[in-house]
């Protein structure tokens, strides 16, 4: 795994957060759409990782490909100015079970 913060440039921040999929149906179409819509509001780059497979967090097909069912652990990495805010909002989606269940 890459080191968390690469240092040097003060503006660029790469942050990581581990989230758990707790909603019953997992990351199917509706949660994935909600995720990319939220991710799309931020300028930072966002990637999502499951068991070593890394996909772009703004790509719906990518997220769906992960087939992240209930109980899966994902690592979201955000890289950019608003990384912190992006991670907070995205993690909240998982905690809120994507407004499902």
């Amino acid at each position: 795994m890459k080191p968390a913060a690469s240092g040097g440039d003060e503006q660029r921040r790469s942050l990581k957060r581990e989230v758990a999929v707790i909603n019953k149906q997992g990351i199917h179409a509706r949660p994935a759409a909600l995720f990319v819509k939220t991710a799309g509001k931020f300028g930072c780059e966002i990637v999502v990782e499951k068991d070593g497979e890394v996909v772009n967090g703004k790509s719906i097909i990518g997220l769906l490909m992960l087939a992240a069912g209930q109980g899966t652990k994902l690592v979201i990495t955000a890289d950019g100015r608003d990384a912190d805010k992006a991670l907070t909002e995205l993690a909240k989606l998982f905690d809120d079970k994507f407004n499902e269940d």
Binding site: G26, I27, H28, A29, L64, A67, A68, G69, Q70
Partner: peptide, 17 residues
Amino acid sequence: TAKEFNNRLIARMRGEA
């Protein structure tokens, strides 16, 4: 297309869980 894909995906995730 979207519904059919989603049903397949949900079934697969359930199987893996």
